[in-house]
Design a protein around this nucleic acid. Structure first.
Lengths: 130, 130
DNA sequence: GGTTTGTTCTATAACTTATAGAGTATAGGC
DNA sequence: GCCTATACTCTATAAGTTATAGAACAAACC
């Protein structure tokens, strides 16, 4: 798993880590049951402090995307989008979509962009294709 | 114009203000040439410091959505989504969309939600409908 | 028992958020 | 032309956030 984190960015490192892991889950790179690297190992990889990785993992745990175990480490868990999540997600989407529209993009352009991003996710897990 | 800002939220006030104004522009509540309230007046409305409003306006100016003048105040300007904006917007959309997919929403559900949010924007300016 | 892993605690420097007051520029009235 | 109202601009400051750091603890596993 390759997580692209920019240490020079103004976006907090723990947030970038969280975002990249969420994207990896959406991508299907990380599937249910996949183990994430140990906090100390991942921190060493990026040359950052393990507390920073800890914070990213903690956000993911709060969101219900991973489970943390003493020895097992962080494991991706199956999740269901509940009603509060949907409402909060829609509110955030509203802001992002508004930004595109305010900058003059048409609704169709925006939908097309979203669809193409979504298509780049989750390559259907290899099934028997006779 | 009613801007719904939550002073108790963990989201910075200036960011909420910016987001609500962007949404008002997308909504068509604020159109090209519309004047925003004066910083001190808006600050007084919310019972916050005018510097905080200033920061929100400054973000909008950096994004090219409004223009600031000494006596005229803040005015909504026509904008065009350039290539860097599109790229950066798509990257942000990727993170948000990934979150929905990671939480188990289907691509279709997500597209439908986006489309319905987009439809709630920009009631097409009243034209002659014979 | 020792290793590996997450968890917790305290501490600290640099940056961000929000507030505050004084200063400066411009439009319009006298 | 000068004055005043208005609102942007600069500097300062307190509180909170981000990232780092070291030390220690707890549980699972070999």
């Amino acid at each position: 798993m390759i997580l692209n984190v920019d240490l020079a960015s103004e976006v907090p490192i723990y947030q970038q880590l969280r975002d990249r892991i969420v994207e990896a889950i959406a991508d299907g790179v990380l599937t249910e049951g996949s183990a994430l690297p140990a906090t100390r190992a991942l921190a060493a990889d990026f040359g950052i402090n393990f507390h920073t990785v800890n914070k990213a993992y903690d956000l993911l745990r709060q969101q219900g995307l991973i489970r943390l175990n003493r020895k097992t480490g962080a494991v991706v868990t199956p999740t269901v989008a509940d009603s509060p999540f949907r409402a909060q997600w829609t509110a955030r989407a509203r802001t992002l979509l508004a930004e595109a529209v305010a900058k003059g993009l048409s609704a169709d352009e925006v939908v097309t962009t979203c669809r193409s991003v979504l298509e780049s996710f989750a390559p259907p897990q290899p099934q028997d294709t006779p």
